[in-house]
Nucleic acid binder design. Sequence first.
DNA 1: AGGCTCTGGTTTTTT
DNA 2: ACCAGAGCCT
Length: 777
Amino acid sequence: MPDLLANLNPEQLAAVTLPDEPALILAGAGSGKTRVLTTRIAWLIQNGHVSPAGILAVTFTNKAAKEMQARLGAMLPISTRAMWIGTFHGLCNRMLRAHYRDAGLPQSFQILDQADQLSSIKRMMKGLNVDDEKYPPKNLQYFINSAKEQGLRPNEVEANDAFNQKFVELYQAYQDQCQREGVVDFAELLLRCFELLKHNEPLRTHYQARFRHILVDEFQDTNKLQYAWLKMLAGQQSAVFAVGDDDQSIYAFRGANVGNMSDFEREFRVRHLIKLEQNYRSHGNILDAANALIENNARRLGKNLRTDAGQGEPVRVFEAATDLQEASWLVEEIKALIQQGLSRQEIAILYRSNAQSRVMEHALVGAGIPYRVYGGLRFFERQEVKHALAYLRLIENPNDDTAFARVVNFPTRGIGARSLELLADAARLYNCSMYAAVPYMTGKAGSNLGAFVKMIEKMRFETQQLTLPETVSHVIEASGLIAHYQTEKEGQDRIENLQEVVHAATAFVTEEGYGLDAPARLLAPRPAALSAPDATGIPVTDGVVDADVPVEMTPLAGFLSHASLEAGDNQAEAGQDAVQLMTVHAAKGLEFTSVFVTGLEEGLFPHENSALELDGLEEERRLMYVAITRAKERLYLSFTQSRMLHGQTRYNVRSRFFDEIPEELLKFLTPRAQPGARLSGGGGDSAWGRDWFSRPQVAAPRQEAWAATRSDQALAERSRAADTGFKVGQGVFHPKFGEGKITGLEGTGAEARVQVAFGRHGTKWLALAVAKLQAIE
DNA sequence: AGGCTCTGGTTTTTT
DNA sequence: ACCAGAGCCT
């Protein structure tokens, strides 16, 4: 017991040993957040506050969930199996599987990932003959997901014009289609689970009584629905332990609501707010820069990081003439760092947008420096893998039209677009799935489709007794996928990936406790100990007391869930020691000895689009804060006078963020560019040669549009117009979002904002001072 | 059915 | 500049 708490600082210790009450932990970057979370759980169990079965720990990503599980496994002598540790989606899936009837779902319901959802929407729209130019499927997808994240069903969404009315109709049609097919999208997992708990009192009471301690990681990233779900799950006796950092909230654009932190504090009457401000990652200058920068944000809960590590190196700043020069400098500097003994993987290059990586990759290739780019296709998102999964899904649930449409003619079986249209018509006529509509088809189309159905039926029969890996192996053969890719020139990689699915299946049944002998399509018998009535004595429907072990899912269902919910690594092959390239977003939670933050230019970072969003600039600043706090020892910030973007050269001014960091922390490797001054001379403490800038330079015209927008004068002028300009109900035109109608107004002068309902872009709050809105009829 | 050309879009992204 | 998706042609 004392060893559990050893080496915790006073703040951490206080957090870990808090009484069983709601608590909010403000955990700064590098402050040992995960350690506090896991130690808290271990401490609670060790001191008899709660049994493992009373623990619910929610994370945002699978990676975080796994890490927590692993650390706990190392801390506690007992199995972590009885605890519910997972992502919001993973836990909701688990609960829905256990109570599928109460949730109104088929036992074999499938999960649509983002891409599946989009193709489902497209198919639905095609069936209804909806103009996809007027109503872009992507926007409908966004509309549907935001509605669900607000907890709104189609009949609850307010539509203030014909356009939105149509979206609501389509939302309803999509919802009907999903229900008929027995599929749920990501947002649906959460909403369905939320509604299940809300409407089913015995179930709610049961889980509320069970989970005495609910711990939430990255609380600042939760959306409204996730918060509502937590509230629903937390009973009177539950202690919610929320850990987050408002300064690292960088996902507002996808629905994260930092406001959940203050809401939580208020609604749960939090008496214990603890700030973890001791940083164990970065040297002083780096931390000072981060602290100074984030001070410029208005609405903060307030936090200042400190370190014992000493000031360390200054923050180095490099100004380049072009993006190409920036990349060459970067490469030289990296070479020097490696020369000094740093390993490549301790070096990270961060950027605001993915498009920026290319120039730098090119330079790295040229210099022969191995590198790794994060982002891109993940394993379960690969075409061939999704094909294999689609066959498995059809075996499990033939009503899954998304899976059906995906592979009915892959490999090709002479089933063309025309046949599928007819089939879709028949399915609509008989209100059944495409699979079920096949018998109604006649002629050649009918026989080809019939053959496909026979093949699936045969697969289902032949895999009846097989284990999961055997099933996968059988399916990739019997579907003809392997044979198909053998005829393709680039098919070898794809075949390897298909084999890899078999391996993934093996790993899955092993790690999830099904065992290698478990038949893929049979429910494992529930262990006796767990089928006994539970301590609360509360009757639970479905005859399921609790979803403790993965018995509520067959190995196959579990594997398909796993594939949808955990798409696999989103990075290139690991292994080799390589320089790490990624967006700042992707870098959140990581740390590196040396960090280069590149492209620090107005318009790029902060991104120009952020000016259109409410509190957009503050989020950009938090993003910059995240970038800075990734660095342990060395931080480089670079910007260019010009760069190629969308095929055109853009001239940039350096990011305002430089002005928000005290000068004494910065060391300019290039001469300070005074406004209008030309570059000359060399830079001193850089691996880059002294005389780089003695080469002829391109005079950089100062930037126009973006720079002008942000000048105070322009701002003042705009706001004056703003006060007179608009009223609720008025039509407006926005250069990016098109026509919309004002649905709300607030603030005055430079603070004035309007809420505008745009058709396909949804409803947005815009700052009048920055948004270029025009009044229309 | 598969390969070609044209067109449009282009911040960040996990589940 | 570059990629993805749609439409068109063979």
